[in-house]
Amino acid sequence: MKRLFLLILLAAALPVRADVRVFACEPEWAALAKELGGDKVSAWSATHALQDPHRIEARPSLIARARNAQLVVCTGAELEAGWLPPVLRESGNAAVQPGRPGYFEAAQFVTRLEIPTRIDRSEGDVHASGNPHIQLDPRNLLAVAAPLAKRLGELDAANAGHYAARQQAFAERMRAAIARWEKEAIPLRGLRVVAQHKSFSYLFHWLGLVEAGTLEPKPGIEPGSAHLAQLLGQAKARPEGGASPGRGSTLGVQQARLIVRTPFDSPRPGEWLAERSGMPLVTLPFTVGGSERAQDLFGLFDDTLAKLRGES
């Protein structure tokens, strides 16, 4: 017992030697850091695919990990506002405080959607900097990869060439994959989809899908029965063989074909609507680790597209 304790203590005191220790707020950034760093980076994700990144507690384990990190890679755009500030403050790690080179916010490098013209609590949990769920447009990953590789090279100058070369290779593979995914998604163009939360805006924007409505009446507000009943009413009012309504139509979920949710959203509201409306409920992986196939950034989109096309 004593020996085991000593071993644990030793293991805890001697972190595995890697060139750059990355604390990622979400699995997609841990995956991207690994793509760019290879064996020169050890990346750890503070959250996993079954967790809602809005609602995390500033747990002691996160503070201990942030204490030892050399680079913190997060989404930003207020996604982690409820838990990351105390984690970083309490960590005593000067290098990863916001504004320092060891702190990297991915959302700064992409064009954000849904930036509100006014911030009003009556509109729900609206982020002033726009929708933070940027990872489901792979072009955003490309936009983040270049500055992230540069940052890794600044923190670990001896391997700057390594990160730059890996970033080039990643960008090439990703561009080729994007071309393939866009081709596969042509039949999905204009597809009307009901999302539980505004988690998929970037995916829909990229592939030309239409968000016909959300199960949440307002961002971050639990789907209530009145709102669900209203959605069902709209779905049932589907005209027989009518023409597809355009984007921004007031027809709500009329002619929607699919309900989508993340692995961490409660399945119940979606199941309720699916059962009564006949629309299938599909769980998209949302991030790396969100499904069996989504084991890396490429698998994430392969699986997302397959699920949207009804192939798996």
């Binding site: 293991a11 005191a13 972190p15 002691p60 384990s61 201990a64 204490r67 030892n68 309490e90 005593g92």
Partner: peptide
């Protein structure tokens, strides 16, 4: 305050 450089939060 001081946080120890261990995986266990101390």
């Amino acid at each position: 305050k001081w946080v120890a450089p261990t995986e266990l939060f101390v």
